[in-house]
């Protein structure tokens, strides 16, 4: 009788250990899944932020203050009118709160020049970058490819010249 009782106790103990082991296993698997989900969520949030930032660069390039509109033939997207931007540079500080960015830089990457020359009314169009708010690149920055277009005189004809450029937008991230 005592033997049967002991055997039963051993069985119950075995069962308890088994249940504990399974419970620990489930908890461990749960931790792995939850941590992987959290890291994925963080990755998605970063991707979403990056996408938003890229959209910001494109949004600014396509805004009426920058875009080529119909000035260079048909309507072009991601096209920046260099003359407009030069004009805008004079009053860029007034737009600072409107854009909600710390700086906007437009850089011509093709054709490539060895020397870096900032665009001004005097040297236009023989230059390769324009710094709108003159604060340099600070905080986070995103860039997107754009056409940088201007008009040039070729013999007796005014021709459209579009170069490949990048619009670099820098912004500060507010931490809540």
């Amino acid at each position: 009788m005592v033997k049967i009782c002991e055997k039963g106790q051993v069985k119950i103990q075995q069962m308890a250990f088994m249940l504990l082991a399974i419970f620990i296993l489930f908890v461990m698997i749960g931790i792995v899944i939850v941590s992987s989900k959290i890291s994925n969520l963080e990755k998605t949030a970063v991707e979403y932020q990056e996408k938003n930032a890229l959209t910001l660069a494109s949004k600014i390039a396509n805004s009426p203050e920058f875009s080529c509109g119909n000035s260079f033939g048909n309507q072009k997207s991601d096209c920046v009118d260099l003359e407009k931007v030069l004009g805008l540079k004079k009053i860029a500080e007034d737009y600072e709160d409107f854009w909600e960015v710390s700086n906007i830089e437009i850089r011509i990457i093709y054709p490539q020049d060895e020397e870096e020359i900032e665009c001004s009314q005097e040297n236009y169009p023989n230059c390769n970058y324009i710094d709108l708010l003159e604060k340099g690149i600070s905080g986070f920055s995103v860039s997107n490819y754009v056409s940088v277009c201007h008009k040039e005189k070729n013999i007796n004809k005014i021709v459209n010249i579009c170069e490949l450029g990048q619009i670099i937008v820098s912004y500060e991230v507010e931490n809540d």
Binding site: D78, Y145, S147, N154, K157, V159, N160, C162, L164, G165
Partner: peptide
């Protein structure tokens, strides 16, 4: 996508009827 559209609009050195 932005790169492709900007690249296709880039003016080359090839001239035709006074336009590049």
């Amino acid at each position: 996508t932005s790169f492709l559209s900007a690249m296709l609009e880039t003016t080359t050195t090839c001239e035709k009827n006074g336009d590049f």
